[in-house]
Design a protein around this nucleic acid. Sequence first.
DNA 1: TCGATATAGAACTAATCTAGTACCGATTGC
DNA 2: GCAATCGGTACTAGATTAGTTCTATATCGA
Lengths: 157, 157
Amino acid sequence: MIRITREADYGILLMTGLAQAESQALSAAVLAQQRRLPLPMASKILKALARAGLLVSQRGAQGGYSLARSPAAISAADIIGALEGPIAITECSGENHDGCSRLEHCEVSGHWPRINQAIHAALQSISLLEMSRPDPPQPIRLHPFRPATTATTGHPL
Amino acid sequence: MIRITREADYGILLMTGLAQAESQALSAAVLAQQRRLPLPMASKILKALARAGLLVSQRGAQGGYSLARSPAAISAADIIGALEGPIAITECSGENHDGCSRLEHCEVSGHWPRINQAIHAALQSISLLEMSRPDPPQPIRLHPFRPATTATTGHPL
DNA sequence: TCGATATAGAACTAATCTAGTACCGATTGC
DNA sequence: GCAATCGGTACTAGATTAGTTCTATATCGA
């Protein structure tokens, strides 16, 4: 139900890694190793997070990534949104009806905006600072790394 | 970001249709026509909702579907959960670690349960009664019906 | 009792999406 | 200048989704 992609999962892992590094810059290779993620994947995700303005990147030798803001000022919604694109409500509501206004049977009640807002609010209420605290009742990984050819368990959220 | 399947979207449409029918039973054909959904699709979804106990079905001529409980007692979480399976937290937390306990790198903090719970709470706070009220600021459809061969716009939630 | 109407359930297919990899270019420190 | 790193795009195999089809079962009414 309401699944999140593995990219977003990994993204949160990487962000918590950076949050714990206390503003020290870490390279993609270091972060990937720390979180046991394949380097190309981690690299791809870090690029996206930097492009979204959540990370600051430093190129060249001794380069790396660090958080663009304090962990308290970054929410789960920020991270997930950066990796999975804008929430739907921005695609088909308000002034922007692209892809929807063409449809002849758009007569249905506005339940989705309400749901979107509820979920968005829930995600925005969770900060990276909270997620970085290593005090969970149960250590849990929902999206464990799985090499491309291996069977998988589902990843519903 | 955090997408919901079209089935769940259609499911909510169909449920609101039944909620507005005020406990009168409606056939799959009637509901499908009302919501402009292809009959086989509507039929498939209604079957699933009935199996999940959200609808009561009446077979045979003059048969149809009606709500198993009052619209106020049915939440968005119920509908989405019925169509997209149990939420992840039940698959990999508490006593039930199937598919996760085997993994060697399960050392990560428990951020997902927190997020799961937040989203689940948000969805549970929205009742079918609310969703059935035709008073939205903007009538919106996120998952418009699209014949199998047609291009699509994304459907992020 | 028979036939029309409806739901129950499983199986199948095409299109789309996801996860992960590979490659090449640009920057920077030593 | 060269090695270390990030930036960006393109590609592929596998999984998932969306929708259809087929057959079985139940019920109403003539």
